[in-house]
């Protein structure tokens, strides 16, 4: 069953159009990679989905409900979660308080504070630390844990491996296996195409605000992908 369905989505920043007639869908429990060069519109697309950008036209259905005009704070309560680009932690809140912010949406489910600490044990030791006292990877774990605490049905992850040490990226991608076990659907925005394809079922490639390729992650060839990625 389709969990998220986007038809003919156009997104604008003032007079500037960033997304052109985009079609996109995610099935329940599915994991989808969204790749593309810098400026292709990946982050804009995700921010528009969760309601953080107002200038959008088109149709967005989530869990059988039209959400294109729904404000972000209501979309969160429907079960569409996001790990924003650059982590965007609450700087003056401790690790534990950051995680507890996920509970404000009052969605019940498998993810609780002890479960998040099971998933990322490094965070339990540092629960009273401030985000700036953590390594980049640990900060990313807080951002993911915070989003999980909302018990989302679909989790959008924006550039979670950006700027992290390879061993950290390994750890975080390992955690996604556990997250998917709970039935959470995923959208992973990635620069690293190979890693994205390895962790997901299906792949979308964006080029200048349009979908340039969509394929099953297993079948896609490097030439096809390169062409879709760079547009040549």
């Amino acid at each position: 069953m389709t969990l998220l369905e986007v038809e003919d989505l156009n997104v604008f920043y003032g007079d500037l159009q960033a997304i052109f007639g985009l079609a996109f869908s995610v099935a329940e429990r599915e994991s989808v990679a969204l790749v593309g060069a810098n400026g292709a519109g990946k982050t804009t697309f995700l921010r528009a989905l969760v309601g953080l950008i107002d200038g959008k036209q088109g149709r967005v259905r989530f869990d059988g409900r039209d959400i294109q005009d729904t404000p972000a704070e209501h979309i969160a309560r429907l079960g569409l979660g996001m790990v924003p680009e650059g982590r965007m932690l609450f700087d003056t809140l401790s690790v534990e308080e950051n995680l507890l912010m996920g509970q404000v949406s009052r969605r019940s489910g498998a993810w609780t504070l002890p479960r998040v600490f099971d998933l990322f044990p490094a965070l339990e030791e540092r629960r009273n630390h401030l985000p700036r006292q953590l390594s980049g990877g640990q900060q990313q774990m807080v951002a993911i844990g915070r989003a999980l605490m909302c018990n989302p049905r679909l989790l959008l992850c924006d550039e979670i491996s950006l700027g992290l040490a390879p061993v950290m990226v390994e750890q975080i991608y390992g955690a996604f296996k556990n997250i998917r076990k709970e039935g959470t659907a995923l959208v992973l925005v990635e620069q690293d195409v190979k890693r994205a394809a390895g962790a997901t079922d299906r792949i979308y490639c964006l080029l200048k605000g349009r979908v340039s390729l969509t394929a099953n992650a297993g079948d896609v060839s490097v030439t096809e992908l390169t062409q879709a990625y760079f547009g040549m």
Binding site: L52, A72, M82, F90, E97, M101, C150
Partner: peptide, 23 residues
Amino acid sequence: TSFGRIVRATADRRDIVRLFGVK
């Protein structure tokens, strides 16, 4: 209190709190 936590989080990032259902 959780009210205080929400206030501090909103002071930190008024956009991002919306992702957690805070207006």
